[in-house]
Each structure stands twice: as C-alpha cells, then as structure tokens.
C-alpha cells in the first residue's frame, strides 16, 4: 500500500515534468516572443536587443528552462515578462478566487448529481427518470459559454435578480465574492452535474441488474435496505474515478466561464498571458492546473483502493 502511494506520487511528478517541457516547447515554437509583442512596431534594432537583454531572452532556451525549473522546485515561479511583477504575487489572489468558484461548483454539483443519478436509476423508465434524464441530457449538450450568456440575459438583465458581471477587486474577500459567484457556479456545475448524474445512473442500473442484488431481493431484504447496503456502495465505487475526471475537466470550464462573467480568476489570466507570450506565467499556470489534475486523480485512486475490499486485499497479498 505504502509503496503504491509513493509510486503514484512519483508518476505524478514525472507527468508534471513532461507537462512543463511541453508548455515550454509549445510557447517557444510560436512565432514572435514577449519583446516583439511588447514593442509592437518598434521591435527591431537596438530597442529589441535591449528588451532581450532586460528580459533575459538572449540566453539559449534550455538554460532558461533549467533556471526556471530550479526556481519552481523552490516555490518561486519567477517574474512575469509583460508586467515585470513577481508571478507568485500575481497568481496568489487569482488562484484563490478560482478555487472558490470551483469548490463551490463541486460542493453543490456532486451531491445533486448523486441524488439525480440514484433517483433516475431507481425509477428507471418511469416519470421521474424521464423528466430528469431529458433535462440532464439537454444541459449536457449546451456549452458553458452559451449557458452563461443565457443566464446573464435571463437572470441578470430580464429579471434583474443578480449582478450579471462580476465587478470586484481581485483581492476581494470571500464574503464580497459570494453574491457574485451564484451565476458562474450555476453555469459551471450544470454540465458537470448532468454528466455525473448520467454516470451514476448507469452505474446504479448495472448493479441493480447484478446477480447479487437479485439474490438480496430473493433473500427478502427490504427495498431501501437493499439499496443502501447492497447497491450504493458497489455502484458508487466506480463513480469515484469518474467524479475525479469530471472535476479536472471542470477546470477548463472555469476558464471559459470566468471570461464570460469577467471574474477575476485564473481564466482571464490564462488567455491574457498566452496572447502576451508571457512564457513564465503560462508555464506557472500549466503547472498549477496539471498539479490539481494529477492530485485529484491520485486522491480518487487511493480512495477507491481504500474502499474496495477486493483491491485492498490484492495489495496486501503483494
């Protein structure tokens, strides 16, 4: 068990290393660089040279990568090229804001998804299932930027219940953020919830059709007892990994939604820094997003391992 955890963490670190290499190479091969973007039409001759000198772009790429990577290992992402600010300071509050948004969506989305999935499975092919399934399939097919725009139109503009655009400073407290994140949370969690509900539904249906559930019924186990003891533990286990994937996938949704709502999070930063060729910021973002991704999957794998008696004893035997 212990070795397995170590092995998984090591694999995660290797993944992160590869991610950093790929983002570095990706930004490197794009035409133009930070100085040409920054100087625009004056990007030639001495001005360009001076800019290169100042930003350290005259050093070969691999040297830049090594010195950057060394910094990251010590928790320092270096300086942003365009703003010439410490990246840690730029990112800090934005990461916090995005995390607030993502965790609110997850905390609301997962319980709703589980509930809907279980209801639709238990009432399979009957009215509750038909209604909920239609709605979930519908909301699964609408991309966030459309549902976000529609939400703004209906709730903010027509009904005037909630602010349509988030206008708070980047370092606003969570309390200040709260009323503003309601619409973004709805927009983000809609697809995720629908997706997860479908997964849970099919998983529960599969377990309901299994021999051991039929056996439990034939043993005379009362319905709800059967659902809670025999069905759900077995049906939700495989769902854990799906949930992890969905959460990781939600990060992408956060980026898009933030832009629509003008939310001061990572989303806008990603887009701005890519168009500014701000390599250190892009790299920092890539590493942060990838770490979250790897971390969530690691946690999901380990939870499954702890909860599944079959896998647990396999590990002990080894």
């Amino acid at each position: 068990m212990f070795f397995l955890v170590i092995k998984r963490i090591l694999l995660g670190l290797i993944t992160l290393f590869i991610v950093s290499l790929i983002t570095f190479a990706g930004v490197e091969v794009l035409p133009g660089d930070a100085c040409t973007t920054y100087l625009e039409r004056q990007a030639f001759g001495e001005a360009l040279e001076a800019c290169y000198q100042r930003l350290g772009l005259n050093v070969p790429a691999y040297e830049r990568y090594i010195s950057w990577a060394w910094g990251v290992l010590q928790g320092d992402f270096g300086y942003s090229l365009s703003g010439e600010m410490k990246i840690n300071e730029v990112l800090g509050p934005k990461v916090k804001n995005s995390l607030v948004l993502a965790s609110a969506s997850i905390l609301i989305g997962i319980p709703i998804a589980l509930l809907l999935g279980i209801i639709t499975a238990l009432w399979r092919d009957r009215l509750p299932d038909i209604i909920i399934s239609t709605v979930t399939i519908f909301s699964m097919t609408i991309p966030e930027f459309i549902s976000a725009t529609l939400l703004i139109l209906i709730v903010a503009i027509w009904l005037e219940w909630l602010p349509g655009i988030v206008i708070v400073p980047t370092d606003a407290s969570i309390y200040e953020l709260l009323p503003n994140i309601i619409l973004p949370v709805i927009a983000i969690s809609m697809i995720m919830t629908a997706h997860m509900a479908r997964m849970v539904r099919s998983s529960v249906i599969q377990v309901m059709a299994s021999d051991y559930v039929q056996m439990a019924i034939l043993k005379g186990v009362p319905y709800w007892k059967m659902v809670f003891r025999h069905v759900l533990p077995n049906a939700l286990l495989p769902a854990i990994n799906v949930v992890a994937l969905t959460i990781a996938w939600l990060l992408g949704g956060v980026v898009v939604t933030e832009v629509v709502f003008n939310y001061p999070g990572l989303g806008r930063l990603v887009i701005e820094s890519i168009s500014n060729r701000d390599l250190p910021v892009v790299q920092a973002l890539a590493i942060i997003l990838a770490s979250i991704y790897v971390g969530i999957n690691l946690i999901a794998d380990l939870t499954t391992l702890m909860l599944n008696p079959r896998l647990k004893s396999l590990q002990i035997k080894k």
Binding site: M215, L218, G220, N234, R310
Partner: peptide, 28 residues
C-alpha cells in the same frame, strides 16, 4: 406486494443461485 413478499422470501422460500461468486455482494 413487495412488502408481503419480503416476509416469504428467505423465510419460507429460499434460493440458492447459479453463480454464487456473483450472487454474494462483493463489499459485504
């Protein structure tokens, strides 16, 4: 009704299934 059947199944009439491996709940 299911409620009434619960008192008969397992008590008055019991079943021994075809594939015991798949008929025992794996997490219990």
């Amino acid at each position: 009704k299911n409620k009434e059947l619960e008192n008969i199944r397992g008590r008055k009439i019991a079943m021994i299934p075809q594939n015991a491996g798949q008929s025992l709940t794996p997490n219990l």
